[in-house]
């Protein structure tokens, strides 16, 4: 039994370990280890395409995670006190957002936004004042942030809601009995209690957005995120440089994920 468990853990971590090991390859052949060095990290970090893609990925992930956490937490708190059709509609939308395959979300966002933009652009051109060139709506970083925010917001609502459901209602009641304003109750009672879940939601959202390939593939327009860059490089062949980029990507998400797990587990303890 122990041996079995160990072999599954090896199965889970050996591939990650192999990538990390080969990223320190000194030779230029991707699959033959010829001494250790960090030179491919240098190569990757001085490649302008990689740095551009990294910058795009970080901007998108930070913005989308921040917006998703803010909007998701707001919605989760509001949904806590609502019953009836509005609540049912939101429950359905959250369910749909999480269940529909990422690839369908990507496709739908692409053709949906392109269709809407095609209608709006001529309209913008006619109402734009003073002969200046109006902004042209097109696919790019904005549409990618929007698509990620929508999906991640559904995720944040689920996480924060689970935490709100485990919260002792007597605490908020006591707070309002003691004449705290609703906002005061939120800031001083609810928020501190749900904060681990909110932070974990942010970290998970960030990693998801940073690692997402499929939605970005459809929605990013002419922008390239790091996963899209890596995907197209792999098609051209395996190089030690990709191993280095891959190891860095894995390291970023591993650190954030362990943090999120610890927060969620600490937060999951009963509050009474």
């Amino acid at each position: 039994m122990r041996f079995y468990a160990l072999s599954v853990y090896l199965f889970l971590y050996i591939p990650i370990g192999v990538i990390a090991l080969f990223s320190f390859n000194a030779g230029r052949n991707a699959s033959q280890l010829q001494g250790l060095s960090t030179k491919w990290y240098g190569v990757a970090l001085s490649n302008p395409f990689v740095m551009d893609a990294l910058k795009t990925s970080l901007t998108v992930a930070l913005t989308a995670a921040f917006l998703a956490t803010a909007f998701g937490t707001m919605a989760a708190v509001a949904l806590q006190g609502i019953h009836g059709p509005v609540r049912k509609a939101f429950d359905l939308l959250i369910y749909v957002a999480v269940m529909i395959p990422g690839i369908v979300i990507g496709i739908a966002t692409l053709i949906g936004l392109v269709t809407v933009f095609d209608q709006l652009n001529p309209l913008l051109a006619t109402i734009w004042p003073g002969g200046a060139t109006p902004p042209k709506l097109q696919m790019g970083m904005g549409s990618l942030i929007a698509a990620h925010t929508m999906f991640l917001m559904a995720l944040v609502i689920i996480i924060v809601r689970a935490r709100l459901a485990g919260m002792d209602r007597a605490l908020t009641e006591a707070s309002s009995d003691l004449y705290a304003t609703p906002f005061g109750t939120f800031r001083q009672v609810t928020l501190p209690l749900i904060f681990p879940a909110v932070l974990a939601g942010f970290l998970l959202s960030f990693t998801f957005s940073f690692d997402d390939f499929i939605i970005a593939f459809f929605v990013a327009g002419s922008e390239t995120t790091l996963p899209v860059y890596v995907f197209s490089s792999i098609r051209r062949g395996v190089t030690p440089e990709i191993n280095a980029i891959g190891t860095m990507v894995l390291a970023v998400s591993l650190i954030l994920l362990f943090a999120a797990q610890i927060l969620l587990r600490r937060g999951a303890r009963p509050t009474r």
Binding site: Y13, P15, I19, D211, P227, V249, S253, L257
Partner: peptide, 16 residues
Amino acid sequence: VPFWTSILIRSYAWIF
């Protein structure tokens, strides 16, 4: 934790 890391890089490992 592995589930939440990049599936792209993890599949790439298996090409390797």
